[in-house]
Write a protein that binds this DNA or RNA. Structure first.
Lengths: 216, 216
DNA sequence: ACCAAAATGTGAAAAATGTATCATTTTCGC
DNA sequence: GCGAAAATGATACATTTTTCACATTTTGGT
C-alpha cells in the first residue's frame, strides 16, 4: 500500500488547512452543476498545483473517483462533517454575535445551542433565537448537555479558564478567538484564530514589498 | 554576510505568521515589566522551540539585543506598525461591525475611517462613530482619500469586484473575510481569513483523533 | 574583575513539504 | 468499440523548513 495516512497518524497542518478549501470548491462546483471535477480544475480555482491536489488526496487515502458527489462525500467524511456538531459560544460581544449570526455552518451540521456571558444584563435574552446564559452555569451546562465544540470570544484573561472547564466537561474541540495561544493536547483539539495576528501578517507583507521596491 | 533575508526577498509564510505572535508576546512581557526576554522564554509562551525563535530573528536580519523595548521596536519595524494605516470596511453586517468595534488595532496604528454597504437603510448612520457610506461611492472615496487596507466582509459574489476597485484605487492590501480565495499580486497584498475553513480544520482534527482511537 | 553558567548567532544536518515524472487508467470523439 | 488525448496514482527528486550543534558572547554572583 505504502500510503502515508496509515503510518503517520497525523496529517500535516499544511494539508489540514487545504482540505476545507477543497471541500468548499467542490461544493461550489456541485452547485454549479459540474459533472466532473479534475485536479487541474481545482488547481485553477485554489491556486496550488494539480500535482499537490493529487498528492493530498493520495496522502488522505485516495478517493474512488472525481465525481462531485463522490468527492464531496469523501471530503465530508475526512472533515467529520457528516456528524452533527453541537457548539456553544462563550462571550456575547460583537464577535460572538457575528459568529452566531453566521448561517454558513448550519448546512454542514454545526449547531450553536447556547451563548454564555458574564454580563447579568443579558440574562434571559436571546441572540438569533439562541438563549444567553450566565457563564457561572457553564460547568452545569457541560455536565448536562453534549457539547462538541466551545467557541471562545472572551477577553484573553479568562480564555485559559474556559479551556480547563471545557476539558473537564468532555468537550472535543475549542475554537479560540481570544488573543492567547491555547494548546491542543490529547484531551482536546484547539484551533486558535488570532484576527489581529492576521492583520499584522498582512501589514508585514505590505511593508516587505515596499522595502524591496526602495532597494532596487 | 550570508543572511537569507537579503537574497530571498520574500520571507516564508510560516515565518510571516509567527512574527505577529512574537510581537504580541513581547508586548505582553513589556507590560508585565520584564527587564529581559530570552528566546527560551518565548519558547515557553508560544510553543515553538527557542532555536526557531533565534533562527527566525536571524532570518529577519537579526536584532541588536533582547531588551523588551528593543525587540518591540524591531518587530514593529518589520511588521510596519510604526506607520499609520488607514482602513475601510466593506460590509456593515455582523462581522463588519465586530471588526469595527475591535479596539485592539488602534494602539498599533490601524484606523478605520469609513464603512461601506449597499443597504440604503444604513445611509447616514454610524457605527462606533464611523460613518456608513453607500458602496456606490467607493471609487470616489478611494480616489479622494488615502486608504492602505480594505477589509472585505461582504458575501462571496462581490468580493472579486471590490478587489478590482481596491487595486484601481491604489490600495496596498486587502483583508478578506469573504469565502473566496483572492490572490495577491504585485499590485496588492491579500490576506484571506476563511473562518469557516478554520472551523472545518478543527473538525478534521477532532475527527482524525477519534478515527485513530478506534483503530487501536 | 573573574569565573561559571546561560544565552545567542550561525552553519550544517535532518525532517518535512512540495514538484516533476511517468506508467497506468480513464475519458471522449469518431 | 477503438485509439488518441487527458487525467490519475505513485514514486523519485528538489526545495523548503526546522532542528541540531557548537563557538562566541553575554549575564550574574562572589
Amino acid at each position: 500500500m505504502g500510503n502515508k495516512a496509515l503510518d503517520k497518524r497525523i496529517l500535516s497542518d499544511a494539508l489540514a488547512r487545504r482540505l476545507p478549501a477543497y471541500y468548499r470548491h467542490v461544493c461550489i462546483m456541485l452547485a454549479e452543476g459540474k459533472q466532473t471535477i479534475t485536479s487541474g480544475e481545482l488547481e485553477k480555482r485554489i491556486g496550488n498545483t494539480s500535482a499537490q491536489v493529487r498528492q493530498d488526496f493520495f496522502t488522505c487515502g485516495g478517493v474512488e473517483n472525481y465525481h462531485p458527489d463522490t468527492l464531496k462525500e469523501w471530503l465530508s467524511g475526512l472533515l467529520g462533517i457528516k456528524k452533527e456538531h453541537h457548539m456553544i459560544v462563550i462571550g456575547a460581544g460583537n464577535l460572538g454575535r457575528a459568529i452566531i449570526s453566521f448561517k454558513d455552518f448550519n448546512s454542514d451540521g454545526f449547531f450553536i445551542d447556547a451563548v454564555f456571558d458574564n454580563n447579568l444584563m443579558f440574562d434571559g435574552m436571546q441572540i438569533c433565537g439562541i438563549p444567553i446564559l450566565n457563564v457561572t452555569s457553564l460547568e452545569d451546562y457541560l455536565a448536562a448537555n453534549k457539547v462538541d465544540i466551545v467557541v471562545i470570544t472572551t477577553p484573553a484573561n479568562v480564555a485559559e479558564e474556559i479551556l480547563e472547564k471545557s476539558i473537564k466537561g468532555g468537550v472535543k474541540g475549542v475554537w479560540n478567538f481570544a488573543p492567547v495561544d491555547l494548546r491542543s493536547n490529547d484531551k482536546i483539539e484547539v484551533q486558535n484564530v488570532h484576527l489581529s495576528d492576521s492583520l499584522l501578517t498582512l501589514s508585514f507583507r505590505i511593508n516587505e514589498k515596499e522595502f524591496w521596491k526602495n532597494q532596487i
